[in-house]
Design a protein around this nucleic acid. Structure first.
Lengths: 227, 227
DNA sequence: CGTCAATTTGAGTCCAATCAACTCCCGTGG
DNA sequence: CCACGGGAGTTGATTGGACTCAAATTGACG
């Protein structure tokens, strides 16, 4: 959901950003479990993930939790809405971010390229969120899990011949809260995919997509394609 | 989901827009049922709804339909993602829009205020979409319908003492595809709300919210508050 | 008044949630 | 080294809420 801004775009817009530490930009570590910001915080800085994985969450008044997104290296965090963040953000793994002052964004005239880049990123994020709508509104459990794995494979997968390998660093409960299921149902769906031979799970974290085309078909709703 | 841009913002950014017809701006009617644009169209113009209601939809490869949003007067339509629209858009009622060339947006330097306004609108939309995530992922049928009615009341409701009255111009099937239910379940939930005395439905379209606080409580998940 | 589509209601089914038990994995301390 | 404990993950049995299919009703419009 958090949209990756190509390195190049950011560099173009703000060459100083990734090169050295000034009052506008610096890099720092976020240990696993630590919060980068919390819902409602005034936005004074934006962040670009350089390593590790973050989790964006919101809580309802009645205590239900929704995982909005996971953020991987390259993703931008901290987009404000009316000057404030609209979700909690904590690190799932030890992570590294570069940050820069959000004040520079107030005036489009002084940094039009950054505005353009941010607008593009926001628009792309909207488009991706619409896909997520489809999932939450219309897909079955197995389709949701297949979709999730499929997007992880695209996002962080390492090619392994025809296959793809990657690590699921987030706990099952987070996946469940992200795709609108319970942990149990996520488990069962993973098991089903495993028994179908679509994926292989070595230890809890490590996933190999054995049949990418089957996974994709399942994600798109061709239920009878397999299983 | 489509976020309203206050009149004033738009006027500031583009005084010419709402005042007369130039090559950059003009106003025209869209009869009910007509498409304003379709998914994948290259974005050459943006639109601001001045009257009527629009429907934004997407179709999956397997034919399932998702209603992304409804757009009311004041909302901006046609936000591009990488130069193209990412949904179909048609008019639910006879409608009127003002349009202007999207080319003017390519360069933030020449129209920084408009960029700022669009960025703000996009960020606000992201925030609202996150709320919709919560609904689609976590809420029960009655909560979804209550949430939908509640937001309609805020968006287009006319105060009537303590109560609120408004018209549901979209068919039940569209509501269902918007909040992730079936038409039958939407009906049943409406009936339940009616029997509880939370709302009143005169003819199919006209709704009166008799107990706004109860509706809001239901929307937020206080299921035992009523019914 | 008749037709047709949209809406509403009803009956039965199914999928995912719930509740509960069990395993696995790690880290800790005896 | 092994026993222990605890949390995360997995599996099982049951329940419940929304879907499906079907029928009845309403309402809009010629």
């Amino acid at each position: 959901m958090q949209v990756s801004l190509p390195d190049q775009t950011f560099m173009d817009a703000y060459p100083v950003l990734t090169r050295n530490k000034t009052q506008h930009s610096n890099s720092f570590a976020v240990p696993a479990g630590n919060y980068l910001f919390r819902e409602g915080d005034p936005v004074s800085r934006l962040y670009r993930v350089t390593s590790g994985v973050f989790r964006l969450t919101r809580l309802t008044e009645c205590g239900r939790r929704q995982v909005i997104a996971f953020a991987f290296p390259g993703d931008i965090l901290g987009f404000p809405c009316e000057g404030h963040t609209h979700s909690d953000c904590d690190a799932l793994t030890n992570a590294q971010v570069s940050s820069f002052s959000a004040k520079n964004l107030d005036d489009a005239k002084t940094h039009p390229e950054l505005h353009q880049a941010l607008l593009d990123a926001a628009l792309r994020e909207i488009s991706e969120m619409q896909d997520h709508f489809m999932m939450l509104a219309k897909k079955s459990a197995i389709e949701r899990v297949a979709t999730f794995l499929s997007s992880l494979a695209v996002r962080i997968g390492e090619p392994l011949g025809e296959q793809t390998i990657f690590k699921i660093v987030m706990p099952r409960a987070d996946i469940a809260d992200y795709i609108g299921l319970t942990t149990e149902t996520v488990c069962r769906s993973l098991t089903q995919l495993r028994k179908c031979g679509v994926i292989k799970i070595d230890n809890i974290q490590s996933v190999v997509v054995l049949k990418p085309q089957a996974l994709h078909a399942l994600a798109e709703g061709d239920d009878n394609k397999c299983c």
